[in-house]
Structure formats: C-alpha cells, structure tokens
C-alpha cells in the first residue's frame, strides 16, 4: 500500500442538530479510483463537499496529501481538482476565458498547459465559443479541463454522469481511466448509478444515512475466476445425484446454484446430460454490486425502521 492521498478521520457533520454524516473514516490511496455509493440523501455530496472545503466539518478531520483541509486550506486544495455536480461555468465567457479565470487563480499555469488540457478533453475546435452555446457533454468536458489545469493529485467528481447520454458517460469513463493510468491520479467519484460505478472504480464505499456501511474491492474477474452459475434442472433428480459428489451447491428456484470456474461449466453440463438430467438453462450468477448494494442498504433500513 502506498501513501494515502486522502484521509478521513472520524468525520462528522451536523446541520441544524441533525447528524448528516456520522463518524466517517476511510483512506484513498494513490492512483486509485474510489467510488462513493449510496441512495439519494445518504450524504455522498455532503462528504465530497467537506473534502473540497465547500462545507465545514463539525468534528473529525480530513487530510489531503498530509494537509488538513480546515487549517491548511490552501495547501490542501492545491492537490485537488474537482467537478461538483454539473459543472456550472460562466456562460457569458468563452470556454477559453473560463479556463483563464481558473488558471489565474493558481500560480504557474502556462498558456501551453491550457492548450494541452483543452486538447486532452477534445475541445480544441470550440474552445473560443461562448459556453452558452455548448451542449451538456461539452460543458462536462470543459469542467474536466478546468479541474486538470493545476495537475492535481486527486480528482473529485460528484455525480459526473448526471444527465449525460451513454456516449457522454463512456467518454468520462475513458478520460478517468487515462488520467489514473497516465498521471497516477487518484479519483473520488460519487454516483447512484451502480453499473457505472462497477465499471469505473477499484474500490467502492457504500454509505447510508451518513454512515459507512461497507467498503468493497470491486470484483476482479481476471484474478478470481470462480463464479456462481445457475442451472435450471429438475431439482429432485439433480439433488439425488449431487448428494454423492464433493460439490457444494445451493437449491434455488427450479434449479441449483454452484460455484464453478469457467472451464468446469462444460464438464458440469456433460455430467448432467450423461446422468439423464434435462438442462433448461445455464447462466452465470455474478453477484453484482447491485445485489450487494441492495443487500446492504435494505439491512440498514430495517435497522432504522
């Protein structure tokens, strides 16, 4: 494990006597894409806003590259680039003028750097047009450009894919991949879109009602090839045969669930066929993030209900 770039220590946020965030602690490592998942109102945005200093921290502390956000705001924010929800930019300025605004606020950003960033997000042709003529996707790209100007170590994106079409979503994803691979950036991204998060993130934290419910490594399919498969078969017959075999299985509806490696699947099918068991359907049952998410969040709700 390398150095943590972002560290939350027992962070609590109270607004009007209500605990919005309750004793949240986690760390984000260098070069990692960290997802922040939770139902609406769980406190994702509040947490992200505390990290970037838009909201105050009631108790606990947040460190960014070793600098406290509260007491060393300028040093801490130096390392952060962010888009908070849909990037709202100055519509009466051109894309370039917008970038100039932000470039002036940090020392040592050259014209060359701006051009480079514009090139990176693919806005070169439209950069001198007024932002009010931009589509949402282009604004999103300009928002990304804005956050990259000062070569931050951490990118923070709050619901970056909100309102984007699938192509736009894919674009953002590709950009993020490039950034983490090429520049070793860490990314914190929040979303309520599960499938999105699964594709983007290395690690995912699920929060609910301001509490950290679970942090999970996103399943790495290459390394861990065992998966659950569902066989729709005659349950009684199959059970009778499997009883004598060293295979653990679970009875499901109209069939059984077995943990297998991919290579073992044809063998299993052949085995059933040889034994005269009719197979109606075979499908992998990936335990998706979604399952985990609902499992975790509904449990939480029951506790609170």
């Amino acid at each position: 494990m390398s150095n943590p770039v972002v560290e939350l220590k027992h962070v609590t946020k109270v607004i009007k006597g209500k605990k919005i965030i309750d004793d949240l602690s986690f760390t984000i490592e260098e070069g990692e894409v960290f997802g922040f998942l939770g139902p609406n109102g769980a406190g994702k945005t509040t947490t992200i806003r505390m990290i970037v200093g838009l909201m105050g921290i009631t108790s606990g502390e947040i460190m960014i590259c070793g600098h406290n956000v509260k007491s060393e705001f300028e040093d801490a924010l130096q390392h952060i680039g962010g888009i908070v929800e849909n990037p709202e930019l100055y519509k009466f300025l051109t894309g370039y003028q917008n970038l100039m605004q932000y470039a002036r606020m940090v020392k040592g950003i050259s014209k060359q750097k701006i051009d480079e960033v514009v090139e990176f997000v693919g806005l070169t042709e439209r950069i001198h047009d007024k932002v009010k003529t931009y589509s949402l996707g282009m604004r999103q790209r300009l928002g990304l450009a804005q956050s990259l100007l000062h070569d931050p170590k951490v990118m923070i994106l709050d619901e970056p894919t909100n309102g984007l079409d699938p192509a736009g979503i894919k674009e953002i994803r590709d950009h993020l991949k490039k950034l983490t691979k090429e520049k070793g950036m860490s990314v914190i991204v929040s979303s309520h879109l599960l499938s999105e998060m699964e594709m983007m993130c290395d690690r995912i934290a699920i929060i609910q009602q301001g509490k950290l419910v679970d942090i999970q490594q996103v399943h790495d399919y290459v390394q861990d090839s065992k998966q659950k498969y569902f066989f729709e078969v005659d349950l009684k017959k199959a059970a009778a045969i499997l009883k004598n075999l060293p295979i653990s299985y679970k009875r499901g509806e109209n069939g059984i669930e077995v943990d297998l490696e991919k290579e073992e699947v044809p063998d299993m099918i052949q085995f059933f066929v040889e034994k005269g068991i009719r197979i109606f359907e075979v499908k992998p049952l990936a335990k998706t993030l979604e399952d985990r998410f609902f499992e975790v969040t509904t449990q939480g709700e029951k506790v609170h209900a």
Binding site: G53, L54, V84, Y102
Partner: peptide
C-alpha cells in the same frame, strides 16, 4: 445564482 461559486471556492485560495 449561476452555480459557479462551487468551482470558484475549490481553488487553493482562502
């Protein structure tokens, strides 16, 4: 009103 305050205040400037 424009919503630009968010991007303005996450600069390393007090």
């Amino acid at each position: 009103g424009w919503g630009t305050v968010k991007l303005l205040l996450i600069r390393p400037i007090k």
